[in-house]
């Protein structure tokens, strides 16, 4: 190999260190890894944005519902205003419990003996459904956060392997010749970390938010079931 040729090649390689150059010169497998990691990053950020907005919305709704609920307004009125539109969070719990209550009293036979247990069950199921809605797709974030560094590392190892095979073939170990291959290989790990770090942070934060919301729903459910069971006992005594 002619030294001038090598220098020329090295200069060209040096010129091609932009992001696009790093991507375009990479091996096919490394390209796939990079594209996959880029997709994972886009997906994880989509989830992060959606979930953050969802939690903010949920929190606002719960605040407003609690305000209305404890304002002394009649539960019947509240139920009537909420029954005909889609609700979430505490509203969903309230509607589910009230529906069970109404069915028990408005039916032909008054089935009040185990009404309290039934309401508890209905509330539990509603909480489950709400929490599931809040926590959906969080596992995707966890997966991206834990797996993408390894995927990036795989791309890097593959790229370095290719680089070393090229070194062996060209019998030239000049750093200027070796460096571009290694740079593009490391670029895969960089993308992997770029995807993984926000995913891990967001997963931990959203998980905590979901737990907080679940705790709040359970607290409301307990209070509401206590109110309902008192009502049941009063009506039974009356």
């Amino acid at each position: 190999m002619d030294p001038a040729e090598v220098t020329q090649g090295a200069l060209q390689a040096v010129n091609e260190v932009s992001l696009w150059g790093l991507f375009w010169q990479a091996h096919f497998v490394v390209k796939l890894v990079m594209l996959g990691l880029l997709g994972a990053s886009i997906w994880s950020w989509a989830i992060i944005v959606d979930k953050t907005l969802l939690f903010m919305r949920t929190k606002r709704q719960m605040d407003r519902f609690e305000e209305v609920f404890w304002s002394g307004q009649s539960l019947e009125d509240l139920y009537r205003s909420l029954a005909n539109r889609p609700v979430s969070g505490m509203g969903a719990l309230f509607v589910a419990a009230m529906r069970e209550w109404k069915r028990s009293f408005e039916g032909s036979g008054r089935a009040v003996a185990s009404l309290a247990q039934r309401i508890d069950k209905v509330l539990d199921v509603s909480i489950q459904r709400e929490v599931e809605r809040l926590e959906s797709k969080l596992l995707v974030l966890a997966t991206i956060g834990s797996a993408s560094p390894f995927i990036g590392l795989f791309g890097t190892v593959w790229g370095i392997m290719t680089s070393f095979r090229s070194i062996a073939a060209s019998k030239n170990t000049s750093l200027a010749v070796v460096a571009p291959g290694i740079a593009e290989a490391l670029f895969a790990t960089a993308i992997g970390l770029f995807a993984a770090i926000p995913a891990v942070i967001a997963y931990n934060r959203l998980q905590a938010e979901a737990a907080k919301a679940q705790g709040r729903l359970e607290g409301f459910a307990d209070e509401f079931s206590a109110i309902l069971s008192r009502q049941i006992d009063e009506r039974a005594a009356a």
Binding site: L38, S41, I42, S44, W45, A46, I47, V49, D50, K51
Partner: peptide
């Protein structure tokens, strides 16, 4: 679901 669009534009 604004996440996907926001994320795509951001990337």
């Amino acid at each position: 679901q604004p996440g996907l669009i926001v994320s795509g534009v951001g990337h």
